[in-house]
């Protein structure tokens, strides 16, 4: 069970929250100019990061406010919680080069302008499925 620290309410049980998917996916500036592929990529394609991931959460049975969270999808370590609309913070605990259990694949958090490359280790050039990365 995760203990999530809501910016308004303090530490609460994971069951009080709802997951809102990947953060920092901007709405297209001119949606009408997108072709079907780009539109479907905006709607349905999200990163499937192994490691630090920026995501949205809603404190649904508490203050009902949204916030962003940097979470490690492997260890579930919550690295940062920051308000909606602000840029992704530099992950303070930038993952050290993987040793052991974590993935050797490059971090695929490349969508959005505010997402820095946090791993910097790109050992195996894994071929991501077309459309999964921009």
């Amino acid at each position: 069970m995760l203990l999530i620290s809501c910016p308004n309410c303090g530490s609460r049980d994971e069951t009080e929250f709802h997951y809102g998917g990947q953060a920092h996916v901007p709405y297209p500036e001119v949606p009408s100019e997108l072709n079907d592929r780009e539109w479907s990529e905006y709607l349905f394609y999200r990163d499937n990061t192994k490691g630090t991931f920026a995501e949205r959460w809603l404190h649904s049975t508490g203050c009902r406010q949204w916030f962003n969270m940097l979470r490690d999808t492997v260890t579930y370590d919550i690295q940062a919680i920051y308000p909606m609309g602000s840029a992704r913070p530099d992950s303070a605990g930038a993952p050290t080069p993987d040793s052991g259990t974590a993935s050797l694949a490059p971090d695929s958090t490349t969508t959005g302008t505010a997402a820095p490359d946090v791993t910097g280790t790109s050992i195996s050039p894994a071929t991501a499925p077309e459309g999964a990365t921009k």
């Binding site: 049980d13 069951t15 009080e16 049975t61 508490g62």
Partner: peptide, 10 residues
């Protein structure tokens, strides 16, 4: 007063 869950319900 806190908004929370008791017995799985809000």
């Amino acid at each position: 007063a806190l908004n929370t869950e008791v017995g799985f319900i809000p």
